[in-house]
Design a binder for these strands. Structure first.
Lengths: 142, 142
DNA sequence: CCGGATCCCCTGAGATACTG
DNA sequence: CAGTATCTCAGGGGATCCGG
């Protein structure tokens, strides 16, 4: 192990503390796809709701356009996070369900959700403080 | 705890399994901000690199425009995830460092990184399979 | 010379209408 | 009902300019 650069900033070593730069690129690409607002909300909604239909899913997610819903679902399907089942009936029926891979990601993301719940007050305070400091800076720039 | 609706789709209950809808809205808003590609990459870079300067940070993150770097950093600062220190020197020097809150988020997000590393092969396979099925569907639509 | 603000351009997200 | 097609416009990327 020639390259054992120790994380200087913490004890919980960075997970992508790879020797191989290629692997890091791959992982970053994946993160770039899953670390997305709609992806996460859809993931969570399906985790809670199980097997859901298109419109139903859209309503539960809330505030998402059909286009983004379709696009994000396709991408998630392509990445193997969920399965898309089309029933050849009229009116059409399509439902979505997480795969094992998707549920694993949901579990992994659980920590972020807990973080958000736990520290929401701190975040709210930080925002207020930031706004006030920004306003204050305008009064006394010198 | 009057409302103990059990998650029907899994044993690891959904983290935002709230009774209070208002709380859910707040948490979702936070998720919407932190579940962002650049936010996560910057977070991780700072976790690994400790205290970093603007340009340095941009290079380590890779592929980010100055505008997005500035904007994302400001937002993260506003949310209390990192501190921005300006040294009144010439040439200017500004560095960024995670706060406790930011490091906590980084820890929380660690699971997602591990997930990406662990399942990257499955994801790659899923993508290939999806592409092939999509192409195949064009040959035999009937 | 660094951090970042500004401008311009183009992708990509939102809203609406239409189709199988 | 579940999309696709179209339009519009905000938002992101790139280059340039600026203040310290």
């Amino acid at each position: 192990m020639t390259n054992e650069k120790v994380g200087s900033a913490g004890d919980h070593v960075a997970p992508s503390d790879q020797t191989d730069p290629e692997l890091d690129v791959l992982v970053r690409e994946i993160i770039g796809r899953v670390a997305d607002k709609w992806t996460m909300l859809i993931l969570e909604t399906l985790e809670e709701g199980g097997r859901l239909r298109f419109t139903q899913l859209g309503e539960l997610v809330g505030g998402i356009s059909q286009k983004m819903l379709t696009k994000t679902l396709r991408q998630m399907e392509a990445d193997g996070l969920l399965t898309r089942t089309v029933y050849p009936v009229i009116p059409p029926k399509v439902d979505y369900e997480l795969t094992e891979l998707g549920r694993n990601l949901s579990s992994a993301f659980c920590g972020v959700w807990l973080w958000a719940e736990r520290y929401r007050e701190d975040i709210a305070r930080a925002r207020q403080s930031f706004t006030q400091r920004a306003e204050h800076a305008r009064d006394k720039p010198a």
